[in-house]
Design a protein around this nucleic acid. Structure first.
Lengths: 120, 120
DNA sequence: CCTTCGTTTCAACGACTCTTGAGAGATTGA
DNA sequence: TCAATCTCTCAAGAGTCGTTGAAACGAAGG
């Protein structure tokens, strides 16, 4: 999934705030099961209303999704959107300049290489 | 080059603004030679003072560099920083979740593959 | 029904962002 | 030196962002 420009702008804006970047991290680590809002708030050290504000922001930007589960509202990272953001960044940087991508490709390799042939 | 968190935050903030994202695009396309401020301003449709504001913002964030050349001030995209930003994004997304990276790796492959063995 | 729990919504406030237009710096050529 | 060119800086104003605390909402349990 490749993002549209306005989606990418929203996503960059979402990630340009420390609390929100940390929230994304926390939710990515939490995996597909996600985490209730309160736990996210606690992990990033935000008040409940502040956390709610940032989580809606992230949800609006498409980077996370939410679902109600009993009294809690569970937030999960949207891997597709995150992946799309990386793609957008590279496609927008790559325009005729593959040398920018070289370092990124190295990062792909060094960051996590469970399966070697990750290419499509 | 991998970015520090505060650098990444600044970079995301820089890219979260339409005019600035376009400026980065224009400068990446322009290549190592760069472009004078006035030309960048014209290409993105900004007034000279607005362009100056955004270009300083980008320079402060480390995404572009500037050098005086006669009357003009030439701006160039910093490929290292751009590459570092992609790396930061992937490393921060990759934490135990290589599946986010799969799509990104595909993008690396499809976006620009002049040399196949781009891995470090 | 009433209370408790988890979360969101609202209003208010200070801080920051972006735009505009006028003016100032630096560099070049006559 | 003077004028022209390119760019930056400054101040003012509208708009947006993030925080806080109080209040409201929905779900679960006694």
């Amino acid at each position: 999934m490749k993002l549209q420009e306005h989606q990418a702008l929203d996503a960059f804006a979402a990630l340009s705030q420390g609390t929100r970047l940390q929230m994304v991290r926390v939710l990515v680590i939490a995996g597909k099961a996600g985490l209730p809002a309160g736990v996210v708030a606690e992990k990033v050290g935000a008040s409940s209303s502040s956390a709610s504000f940032h989580l809606s922001h992230l949800e609006h930007s498409g980077l996370v999704a939410s679902k109600r589960e009993g009294r809690s509202i569970i937030y999960t990272a949207d891997y597709d959107a995150l992946s799309g953001l990386v793609q957008f960044l590279m496609a927008d940087c790559c325009q005729g300049h593959p040398e920018i991508i070289a370092g990124a490709a190295a990062a792909v390799a060094s960051c996590c290489q469970p399966q070697d042939g990750a290419n499509a």
